[in-house]
Design a protein around this nucleic acid. Structure first.
Lengths: 241, 241
DNA sequence: GATTCTATCTCGCTG
DNA sequence: CAGCGAGGTAGAATC
């Protein structure tokens, strides 16, 4: 772990500091007044303002303002970064192909350039995901309804893979769609597509049930469920304490 | 615009530097070796590693590793940040309510604390959005088909607002759903819901057409369109040069 | 506040 | 490479 800072560098010094960091495989941050232009999947321009530019060794670029979770402009991983001086400005250019897109960040003033030798071997462990909900339902199928028997997960249908496929106590086929949080109309559409696909392949379509398992549903989603003859069961992704 | 740096500070000095920056309404960055814990909409833990923590004056917190566009952990805007020392570590805590969630970043070593007085009055201008596609189609409805006449945009239906509502040369109602890029099954479901809602309200349901306008569709989406009797017209969000 | 939908969504997985 | 779906999605518009 190592960090180096250059404060209020001249344009050439800033360019050199960025290049050293990029060559070393460090995370480089540049703080200063800049304009930004993006062209690719869409295109955008941003006038002068004070912002923080982060360049990562994996080819990611992020331009952050003083507000918001999201960068105001960015490039995804696997881009090529380059730092040059043009018209007295530090210009950072980041580009990739497939799709062709490029980002220009032009600094009229650089306050600080830092680089950090970042190493991170830890992996994030998250709980409360849809996978947790699936494990919970498989461990206790009665959460869906008494007598429910899961037979397969990720079972393929012409419309995609069903989360849980099983049978109810009357032997009817049950398709379960899992969502870790409150669901809207989109999830009902997804479940409907799976059920429709199985009904088309079946001789007795009416016997196929579709059940949406989630903490809750919106009103519109509930209406859609009723229209399509689908059902809803409330289950949290993790047991409430 | 102003930037201040403290390199390899002791724990108390790091805490004080963070507090000064937060109090001043600056963007604060902390680089060092840390562990991270989140609990709220889900929960997560992350073991020790070198990372960059950004604290924004709007209450945003971002933890970035050396890889990826997305922060490995974060808090959205409007959180309260606090820096303390516990067990010889710098602990940054960020929390909010509705929903209740909190983030702990514990630094066992701090390499650098910086703060930046960020001001940004410029607003981002983006082109090539769905709004551009709508303007394009409204300016030249023949892009959809000869004789198409838009009558309303964002027209309300029981299933939500339709992008463009109009009539064809035979006087039939046309519902247009716009997408700025290649579309999958979700967009077909959306269009289908609008068309179904209007058909239910109509005496002559069969006369209502649904047209998906986008650069292209996936195979599965094309099948769904056929099944539901919907149509597709290829249009780019911006004129090809 | 809750709901709905867009997004340069990102990310991971699968064929 | 494309397609599909999850995400602590975020963000904006609307009710």
């Amino acid at each position: 772990m190592d960090a180096t800072v250059v404060s209020e560098p001249g344009v050439e010094a800033a360019r050199d500091a960025v290049r050293v960091g990029l060559d070393a495989g460090d995370v480089v941050s540049v703080f200063g007044r800049c304009r930004v232009a993006y062209d690719g999947r869409a295109s955008s321009t941003l006038g002068a303002g004070d912002r923080l530019l982060l360049l990562k060794p994996d080819g990611t670029a992020l331009v952050h303002t003083d507000e918001g979770h999201q960068p105001v402009n960015w490039q995804p991983p696997d881009c090529d970064h380059a730092a040059t001086v043009a018209d007295g400005e530090l210009v950072v250019h980041s580009s990739r192909s497939t799709p062709d897109e490029e980002l220009y960040v032009r600094f009229e003033a650089v306050e600080q350039v830092s680089r950090y030798a970042v190493t991170d071997e830890s992996t994030l462990s998250v709980e409360g995901t849809e996978e947790d909900l699936r494990q919970r339902v498989l461990a206790d199928p009665a959460l869906v309804e008494a007598g429910f028997e899961p037979r397969a997960t990720e079972r393929d249908t012409p419309a995609g893979a069903v989360d849980i496929y099983g049978v109810d106590s009357d032997g009817r086929t049950v398709v379960v769609e899992l969502k870790r949080r409150r669901v809207g109309p989109d999830a009902v559409g997804q479940l409907g597509r799976y059920v429709d696909a199985l009904r088309r392949d079946s001789h007795d379509g009416a016997s196929i049930r579709g059940i949406l398992v989630a903490p809750s549903v919106t009103d519109r989603a509930r209406e859609l469920l009723a229209e399509e003859g689908l059902e809803f069961v409330a289950v949290e992704p993790t047991p409430s304490e």
